[in-house]
Amino acid sequence: MKAVTVPFFISHQGCPHACVFCDQRVISGSSGSLPSRQQISDTIDSWRSSAAGRPLDVAFFGGSFSALPEQVQDELLAPVQSFLESGVVRSVRVSTRPDCLDDATVRRLAGQGVSVIEIGVQSMDDDVLALSGRGHDAAASEAALRCIKEQGLAAGAQLMPGLPGDTPAAAFRSLERVIAAGADFVRFYPVVVLAGTPLARSYQAGEYRPLDLEQGIALCKQLLHRAMRGGIDVIRIGLQAGDGLNSATVLAGCWHPALGQLVRSELYFDLVRQIAAAVPDDAPFSVTCHPSRVSDVIGQKRRNLARLRPSGISVRVVPDDALLLEEVVVEYLGHCFKGNIITDLNYNISEV
């Protein structure tokens, strides 16, 4: 049974640096104040009542959890313990910086029920990290990921394609390195330029040019494809839409409230287009896919279908739960062609 995530935002708490791109309070819509013990207990109780029996995962997002004073960490985790013991809460997840973890810290967190640690890697290129004001190098991220894995916890890595000095090839190498270091899952957050940040000033001065939406989608689809081939879960693409992200706060960059769906949809478009190349231009055809992927095949505002047949010739999309999530079947006039995103698509990163 899929768990429900109970989020607690501790925006920028514990962070010893102010990175050029960062404004966690805008990103999360939270003031960044720490929740009290009672607030944590009450929030978990509230989510339990609406979870319809599903287990809960508690997550502390936004700040650098392990950089907080140990007493503060203990106070945040203490009210969760009874819920862990009763089985109401299945696991606890924290986010932190890679240079704020060591074996002793991971063991202490694991002893208090933490089973997942995400680290803000952002890039595995030391020049990109320096230009972004991260205050650590790529080796720190590799060491942190290995430390998490050695202690038996699940490790996550957050990557930010498009930072100053970054290139598509460098972003791809960053993903390869976190996979090699043992990451169990990743998030892709292509850069968004937020008003009031040092990055915004560089952008407004013409010194920095972020990926736009089209460029970000083209890069992220290839990163997603590589992760899929490596068996690595991609649990999010793009910042979550919220009250803090709007036309006043987002100056530029790759942002869309449904960016993940746009990226996945491109993979299905590329696969169907590749398979349908054998279909005569004047022939209607159908595409069969898993029911949960129908919207990805169709595309937002039916964009994929319009690109497949700009002449308006019929393209019918049919659900079939016997297919794998990554599979599609193209049929026309008794001919049938099957393809799989993971095994049948190939990309050249230089094309981005």
Results as ranks from 00 to 15, higher is better:
Met1Gln: 13
Thr5Ile: 15
Pro7His: 14
Ser11Glu: 14
Phe21Lys: 05
Ile27Gln: 15
Ile27Glu: 12
Ser30Asn: 13
Ser31Val: 05
Ser31Tyr: 03
Ser41Cys: 04
Arg48Leu: 02
Ser50His: 10
Ala51Gln: 12
Gly53Met: 08
Asp57Asn: 15
Phe60His: 15
Phe61Ile: 14
Gly63Ser: 15
Gln71Asn: 11
Leu76Asp: 12
Leu76Asn: 12
Ser82Glu: 08
Leu84Thr: 06
Ser86Tyr: 05
Gly87Pro: 02
Gly87Trp: 10
Ser91Met: 07
Ser91Val: 02
Arg93Gln: 08
Pro98Gly: 05
Pro98Tyr: 09
Asp99Phe: 07
Cys100Asn: 05
Leu101Arg: 11
Ala104Gly: 06
Ala104Tyr: 05
Arg108Gln: 11
Gly111Trp: 12
Val114Lys: 13
Ser115Thr: 15
Val116Thr: 14
Val116Tyr: 10
Glu118Pro: 03
Glu118Tyr: 08
Met124Tyr: 06
Asp127His: 13
Arg134Phe: 07
Asp137Met: 11
Ala139Gly: 11
Ser141Trp: 06
Leu145His: 08
Ile148His: 11
Lys149Asn: 10
Gln151Thr: 13
Leu153Thr: 10
Ala157Arg: 08
Leu159Pro: 00
Leu159Glu: 05
Leu159Met: 08
Leu163His: 03
Pro168Glu: 01
Ala170Gly: 08
Ala170Trp: 04
Arg173Phe: 05
Leu175Trp: 15
Glu176Trp: 12
Ala180Ser: 11
Ala180Lys: 13
Ala181Pro: 06
Ala183Gln: 10
Asp184Cys: 13
Val191Ile: 13
Val193Pro: 06
Leu194Arg: 06
Ala195Glu: 10
Thr197Val: 08
Pro198His: 14
Ala200Asn: 09
Ala200Ser: 12
Ala200Arg: 08
Arg201Asn: 09
Ser202Met: 15
Tyr208Ile: 03
Leu213Gly: 05
Leu213Ser: 11
Ala218Ile: 00
Lys221Phe: 02
His225Leu: 14
Arg226Val: 12
Met228Trp: 14
Asp233Gly: 08
Ile235Tyr: 01
Ile237Tyr: 07
Ile237Met: 03
Ile237Cys: 10
Gly238Gln: 08
Leu239His: 07
Gln240Ala: 10
Gln240Trp: 04
Leu251Cys: 07
Gly253Lys: 13
Cys254Phe: 11
Cys254Gln: 05
Cys254Ala: 15
Gly260Arg: 04
Ser265Thr: 02
Ser265Arg: 07
Ser265Asp: 11
Glu266Lys: 13
Arg273Trp: 03
Ala276His: 01
Ala276Arg: 02
Ala277Cys: 04
Phe285Gly: 03
His290Lys: 02
His290Glu: 10
Pro291Asn: 07
Ser292Asp: 13
Arg293Met: 13
Gly299Ile: 06
Gln300Asp: 00
Asn304Leu: 01
Gly312Glu: 08
Ile313Glu: 12
Val315Phe: 02
Arg316Ala: 12
Leu333Glu: 08
His335Glu: 14
Asn340Tyr: 01
Asp344Val: 10
Asn346Glu: 14
Glu351Lys: 00
Val352Thr: 00
